[in-house]
Design a protein around this nucleic acid. Structure first.
Lengths: 214, 214
DNA sequence: ACCGTAACGGACGCCCCCGTCCGTTTGGCT
DNA sequence: AGCCAAACGGACGGGGGCGTCCGTTACGGT
């Protein structure tokens, strides 16, 4: 099932491929997924046709563009699970994910969006969520993560994090850090207070929303 | 300075005006500010030209459309300030604002967006923020609101709340409620823990972002 | 009942984006 | 050096939203 791409013999094609991906990272990172394909093409110094030849659809381009950051996300979850202190792992995870999402404006949408086709995304997102669930369970056992927490709450906060993205890069990073700190504070158990403040029911969040027309 | 609108003698014109505003509330509330003007016109049962005659620009329509909700926001702040328990007032304010923003998908954008022209918005937003600052100061004096809190943190959370709006109405309301609860939890002081967890620096959030092309 | 005028709405031109076609260029093998 | 196929990019047609023009309708005062 691994991707045996043609590995085209021609050097210009290979060059253009990486130039396009670089451009896509820059453009989507700066302007979000709603950026026109032509903007990416211009930034890469190629024509629109070339772009579409390499990536037949916008989704295909997006998926490839953010593959690395998705891997970083997985690694973050893996590291968090490996942490001997689950609560510390959980906290670091929240911080790291927020930072990842803050640095690239497009990544959040690429990550949150449920692509009809690119089930790749959905598939390993599901798997990742299961891992987070396990991490959360352990963190709750230590008594540091509040009992009412469910995995959907993390999604809730990630969705909320999207709201910060219509902000210039620097302010966004700062805002994201503070947001993450508050989120962690909200998720922390407060045993001193006796029974923790009861929470309203957790929403069942369905991530329907397609890119390009946000 | 009060608005002495023509109060056009013709009944159909007056009717259409309210029909347009109703339609705008429905459409912008359901689909957000990016909804086409024509959609509003269709929903109101009028032609595009009629719509543009009543409201020369999209912003004008938006401002009028959400005037009532803005008043509700002001009232909420006023009530919160009047509350004999500042922390209780603060909490209620957060809940109420979140609910207001959850019910109408367009209102958040209308509220957060810094319109170049409609300085009305910016002006009384500024005034409202001062009132919130006063409320926060009082709540902090009671020791229930965490010392590190600044007014921009509330804006931060409102911006974050925007991230929830690409969700169908029911889920959005539920998510918003839970979000509000977590936010309040995050803002609450935790004196039992000794020094409260230090927060990263608060961002200076500038609300630049124009509607119609989100 | 009539008429003037204000209000109406279908239709137009503009711009931006999308995805594709086809004539041209160029890399790499012989 | 020469050739062929693969890769390139300018240009095209389609779709959708925006704001405006102008011929038509109908309100309301006389």
């Amino acid at each position: 099932m691994t991707n045996h791409l043609p590995q085209t013999a021609r050097s210009d094609a290979r060059d253009n491929r990486v130039r396009i991906l670089d451009a896509a990272r820059a453009v989507f990172g700066e302007e979000g997924l709603s950026a026109p394909m032509r903007e990416v093409a211009r930034h890469a110094g190629v024509g629109p046709a070339t772009l579409y030849r390499h990536f037949p659809t916008k989704q295909a381009l997006i998926v490839e563009t953010f593959a690395e950051q998705r891997r970083a996300c997985h690694a973050a979850v893996r590291d968090a699970l490996a942490d001997s202190d689950p609560w510390h792992g959980f906290r670091s995870l929240v911080e790291l994910i927020c930072e990842l999402h803050a640095h690239s404006r497009g990544f959040t949408d690429a990550f949150m969006t449920a692509f009809p086709e690119a089930m790749d995304f959905a598939a390993d997102r599901e798997q990742t969520l299961r891992a987070v669930g396990e991490l959360a369970r352990r963190a709750q056992e230590t008594g540091r993560l509040r009992p009412g927490f469910v995995v959907d709450d993390l999604i809730l906060m990630l969705m909320a994090h999207r709201g910060l993205q219509d902000t210039p890069h620097d302010a966004r990073v700062t805002a994201s850090r503070r947001f993450a700190a508050y989120v962690i504070e909200a998720f922390r158990a407060a045993p001193e207070r006796g029974a923790p403040t009861p929470l309203p029911p957790a929403p069942r969040l369905q991530l329907t929303h397609s890119p390009g027309t946000p």
